[in-house]
Every structure is written in structure tokens, then in C-alpha cells.
Computed example of a mutant assay.
Amino acid sequence: MTRRPFTPKVVTANALLEGDAVWLTEDDRWTRDIADAELIEDEAVAEDRLLFAISQPDVVVGAYLADAKPTDTGPAPIHFREAFRTRGPSNYAHGKQAGE
């Protein structure tokens, strides 16, 4: 069986307290903007970064590697699920969304 070639990834998770989708930056911060995320093009580095994310259960939950592509403004999602997560929660008019 042949292995599929590694494709670029970002580390994503949900912020523990707010539940927002977040992405890991190159300088070990969590951002709510995927364009600021670290785009990882090496499989071993991706695994190390994921382990780093998983080691922060007091900050984030559900960390995983998501396929992404480079753009002029930073990483962008490839799959629908990730594109959907960049837009925030899908429910309306409560909490911090009530003012929008």
C-alpha cells in the first residue's frame, strides 16, 4: 500500500473557555484567525506541533491537524468543515454574537 504524500497542515482546536475555533501560530500562540496560523509543510514538524497543542488541556481541547493551503494572506482551509469553522458558531443572537 502506498502512502499518500503529506499535504500542508495547520493545528486547530477549540478554546477551552470560549469554545471558539483557534489555530496555532508559529510563535506558540492561539489565534482566532486562520490566516495567522502556522502552515506546516513537514510531517514530522506537524506531529510535533500537534503534540505541543495536545499538551495544553488547560487552554484548548480537541486539537488536530487540518489540511490547509498557502495564500497571499496566510493559510486558508481546504475542506468545507474547516472553512465553516473559520466563520464561528453557527447559532444566532446569543452570547457575544448578540451584538452583531
Rank of each mutant, 00 (worst) to 15 (best):
M1V: 09
T2P: 12
R3A: 15
R3G: 12
R4C: 01
R4E: 14
P8T: 04
V10S: 03
V10E: 06
V10N: 03
V11A: 04
T12F: 03
N14I: 06
N14Q: 14
N14S: 14
L16G: 00
L16V: 03
L17Q: 10
L17N: 10
D20I: 00
V22E: 04
W23F: 15
W23L: 01
L24K: 03
L24F: 06
L24C: 05
T25Q: 00
T25E: 00
D28I: 01
D28T: 09
R29V: 02
R29Y: 06
R29N: 08
W30D: 01
W30E: 01
W30P: 00
T31D: 09
D33F: 12
A37C: 04
A37K: 02
E38H: 15
E38T: 02
L39R: 06
L39F: 05
D42S: 02
A44P: 00
V45H: 12
D48R: 13
R49G: 03
L50E: 08
L51Q: 13
L51R: 15
A53P: 10
I54P: 03
Q56W: 04
Q56Y: 02
P57D: 02
P57E: 01
P57N: 01
V59R: 08
V60I: 10
V61Q: 08
A63H: 09
A63F: 10
A63E: 10
Y64L: 13
L65C: 06
A66I: 03
D67T: 10
D67R: 13
K69D: 11
K69E: 15
P70S: 15
P70I: 02
P70G: 05
T71K: 06
T71A: 07
D72F: 06
G74V: 07
G74N: 08
I78E: 11
F80L: 15
R81S: 14
A83N: 11
F84D: 14
R85Y: 11
T86W: 00
R87K: 13
R87N: 12
R87F: 11
G88A: 09
P89Y: 07
N91D: 15
Y92G: 08
Y92H: 12
Y92P: 04
A93M: 04
A93G: 05
G95Y: 05
G95H: 04
G99P: 05
G99W: 06
E100H: 13
